Amino acid sequence: MTMDLSLTIMQLLSGIALGAVLVITALGLTIVFGMLGVVNFAHGALFMIGAYAGLYLASLTGSFWWGLLLAPILIGAFGMLIEFVLIRRLYGRSVDDPLLLTFGLSYILVEGVRIVFGSDGIPFPTPPQLVGVLDLGIGFFPRYRLFVIALVAVVLLVLWLTLEKSRIGLIVRAGARDPTIMQVLGVDIGRVWLAIFGLGVGLAALGGVLAGPMRSVNPEMGSLVLAEAFVVTVIGGLGSIVGAVVAGLMVGISISMVALFAPEMATIVMFALMAVVLLIRPQGLFGVRGRTA
C-alpha cells in the first residue's frame, strides 16, 4: 500500500474519531430540541464543564475511568437542576426565551470556570491503557481515538435500544409528541422532561470528557464545539437523532480530510457543507417539514 493511500486512510479514521465526539455532543443538543423544543445555547459550556469535571474526578480518584463514568452523571444531574429551576418556567412561551436564558447561562458558566481554574489550558492525560498507537496493518493509529470510536458506537446502540425498543423510550417519545394526552394517562410529564434534559446535558458532558485527552481543557473549548454541534444538528435535521449521527460523521470526516489537503480551509468546510445541504434540502437530511422530532 502506498504511503499516500495509508495516510489518507489514517486521516479518514481521525475524521471518524472527531465525528464521534461531534455525534455524541450534537445528539444531546438535538434530543433536547427535538423532544422539548428548547434551543440550549449553554450546551457548549456544559460540554466544557464536563471536561473539567472529568479531569478533576480523574485526578481526585487517580483513574480516568472514574472521571469518564461519574462526570456525565454529575453534570447530567446539574442539567436536571437547570431544567427544574430555570427552563421549566419557559415551556409554552416563545422559543427565543429559553434560547436567551441559556445564552446568558453559558456566559455565567464560562466566567465561573475561568475564575476557579484560570484561563490557561490544562492537559488532560490519556489513560495509561490507551497511550500509544496500534498497528492496523495499513498504518499506525492512536489507541485512544479507536477507543473513542468504539465507546461512542456502544453509547449510540444503548441509546437507540432505550428510546426505540423500551417502554421508557415509548413514554419519552409519546410525551414529546403529545404531553397533554400523557398527563391524562397518568404520566408525570414533568419527570419525563427532566430526564430528557438531563440526558442531553449528560451526553454533552460525555463528549467533553472524551475530547479532553485530544485537546487541552480550557474555558473556551465549548465555543467551537457549540458551533459545530449546531451545524451538525442543522445538517442532520432539527430533532433527528439519525440525522445527528450521520451529519456528525460527515462533518468530522470533512474537516479531517480537508485539513490533509488544505489546512486553512478546515475550519470553514463544515459551514460550506451546511450551506449546500440547506440549499438542497432546507429541513436537513433527515428533518421533516413542520416537525421538530
Rank of each mutant, 00 (worst) to 15 (best):
V209F: 15
I73V: 13
A20I: 00
Y56A: 15
G287C: 04
G15L: 07
S166V: 08
G287N: 02
V232M: 09
R88S: 07
V152M: 09
F47H: 04
Q183A: 12
I75Y: 05
V209P: 11
I253N: 04
G207V: 15
G137P: 02
M257W: 12
L163G: 10
A176D: 02
I138N: 03
M35F: 06
G239S: 03
L163M: 12
I16W: 04
M214Y: 08
L7M: 12
G207H: 08
V225G: 13
R215S: 15
T61Y: 00
G19P: 01
A176M: 08
L29Y: 00
L260Q: 14
L46W: 03
L210D: 08
P213Q: 08
M265P: 00
S6P: 01
V184G: 02
R173E: 03
A205W: 11
F78K: 02
V288N: 06
A259V: 00
M250S: 09
L279R: 11
D188R: 15
V152Y: 11
S94M: 06
M274P: 08
G237Y: 00
E83N: 06
R167P: 00
I73T: 05
V148L: 00
L185A: 13
A58G: 06
A262Y: 14
L86G: 02
T162W: 14
V242C: 01
D4Q: 10
V232N: 06
V187T: 11
E264R: 15
M274C: 10
P98D: 00
P128K: 09
L69K: 02
P128F: 06
V110F: 06
Y107W: 12
I268M: 15
T126C: 05
L224Q: 13
M274R: 12
V217T: 14
F41L: 14
I168E: 05
M265E: 10
F140H: 06
V131P: 05
G50D: 06
L86S: 08
L68H: 05
L273D: 07
W160V: 11
G112Y: 12
K165P: 03
L185D: 01
F84R: 15
S63H: 06
L279W: 09
L159S: 09
V234L: 11
V187F: 10
Q183W: 15
A262P: 01
T180M: 15
L70E: 00
D4M: 12
L226D: 03
A20N: 03
